[in-house]
Each structure stands twice: as structure tokens, then as C-alpha cells.
């Protein structure tokens, strides 16, 4: 069974207060090398067998209209075995 994975991230120019909060918490745990943190979302969509080109196209569409908000976010669709 394969998974279609959609990663959604805030666009680089959009302020990410949650990522900033994580970035400021990490040094308190000893992770002093952190330059910055951006927080995003990951969707895993399971399909029977290998995803078809049509299914991937439909997931692209779903990512555009529902899973992400193109005003503030970018997304990437990929297949994970």
C-alpha cells in the first residue's frame, strides 16, 4: 500500500508565530544550534496499490482547494512507499 503525502507550509514571507515559539523553546533544552523553525502540516492519504496519475492529479486539486490556503501556504504532493 502506498501513501500520497501532502506537505503544507506557510509561505516564507508569512509570519509563523508557532515556529518562532518552538525555535525559542529549543535552546532551553540544549539545542543551541537552531537558526529558525517553521511549522507546517503533513497529510498522509492511503490508496490501494500504486497511485495513478489521475489520483495524483485529484490530490493536487484537493491540496489546492482544501488542504492548503494558497493565500498563505505552499504545498508539495509526493508518493511514499
Amino acid at each position: 500500500m502506498a501513501k500520497i503525502v501532502v506537505d503544507v507550509m506557510l509561505k516564507p514571507e508569512i509570519l509563523d508565530p508557532q515556529g518562532n515559539a518552538v525555535a525559542s523553546a529549543l535552546p532551553r533544552l540544549g539545542f543551541s544550534f537552531t537558526k529558525s523553525v517553521r511549522q507546517g502540516k503533513r497529510f498522509e492519504i492511503e490508496v490501494e496499490g500504486e497511485p495513478t496519475a489521475d489520483q495524483l492529479a485529484q490530490v493536487e486539486k484537493a491540496a489546492e482547494v482544501l488542504l492548503s490556503n494558497p493565500v498563505i501556504e505552499n504545498f508539495v504532493v509526493r508518493v511514499e512507499k
Binding site: 506557510l10 508569512i14 509570519l15 508565530p17 508557532q18 515559539a21 490556503n69 493565500v71 498563505i72
Partner: peptide, 11 residues
């Protein structure tokens, strides 16, 4: 309406 509402800057 255009734009989006995001997390308050101070969380």
C-alpha cells in the same frame, strides 16, 4: 474576501 486570518503574532 481577499487575504487570510492567521495566528495572533504573540500566540
Amino acid at each position: 474576501l481577499p487575504g487570510a486570518l492567521t495566528r495572533n503574532s504573540d500566540l
